[in-house]
Nucleic acid binder design. Structure first.
Lengths: 131, 131
DNA sequence: GCTTACTATCTGCTTTTTGTCAATAGATGA
DNA sequence: TCATCTATTGACAAAAAGCAGATAGTAAGC
């Protein structure tokens, strides 16, 4: 099941899982558009958008959050009332909402690229079968 | 037309156009699966997969090709018969074909993520309208 | 013959982004 | 007390991308 690609096995070092990261910021912004949250919780919520929390180091998530705060897309406040260690709770800002919209446009273009690749790959496979 | 996202303008430094490159290797492999080619020609062919050649530095393409050769996915030979400067003509190898297949599976997952993001963004927009 | 432009590839250097690993710290339960 | 879960941060290394320019053959126009 994991892979209908022949000859896949072997020594390929997964440069992939890196690179997939560029859906991460839009995903975080979307989650914050759905409601305020903090880093640790966002980590959990991310798997509803197809991220595998096992392969996602928390430092990456926190870094993106701080970067996006620096860029003015989100804003954070400390929550000391909750149990356990204090949480930095993020909320999306106006600039973040419009950036999310822009990123989704870019992602739509990427989706188009992927669909082209899939179609043309199908064509190749069909040609090979005819022979 | 370029952007139905309010408030997009301003000081956003485009970290984006960088980073989107992760469809590039699959695209190059696909083009080579369709037929042998050389770097300069591949640059042209890429716009049929939604790459803007204006924003794509040739050194990046050449570098990816050499990397993929080093990884054993493709193989090159010099073509001295053609006019102009000599070309390094690439052909896809067996390992490259199965890697392409694997990458397309990963990309399919990314496509799924993007669709989730789009759907949930739609939901947010609809909720906002109701208010 | 000289200049310009197009084809074609490669290298070096810098910045940006990711990955990895570990430190810190409160709360909870055995 | 010790392990474990929650929660965030920092430092350093590796990978990828951006940028600028070197090199070179060919062809067209003057």
């Amino acid at each position: 099941m994991p892979g209908r690609c022949r000859g896949e096995g072997g020594q390929f070092r997964p440069r992939w899982k890196r690179g997939m990261r560029f859906t991460l910021r839009p995903a975080l912004l979307l989650l914050l558009a759905e409601g305020d949250s903090h880093g640790y919780e966002l980590m959990d919520q991310l798997d509803s958008i197809g991220f595998d929390s096992n392969e996602l180091d928390s430092s990456i998530v926190y870094r993106h959050l701080r970067d996006m705060e620096e860029m003015g897309f989100i804003h954070s406040t400390w929550d000391d009332d909750s149990k356990g260690p204090r949480r930095r709770v993020y909320q999306i800002k106006e600039a973040g909402a419009s950036r999310l919209c822009g990123w989704l446009e870019s992602l739509d273009h990427v989706r188009g690229q992927i669909e082209i690749l899939q179609k043309r790959y199908q064509n190749i496979k069909e040609q090979e079968e005819k022979k």
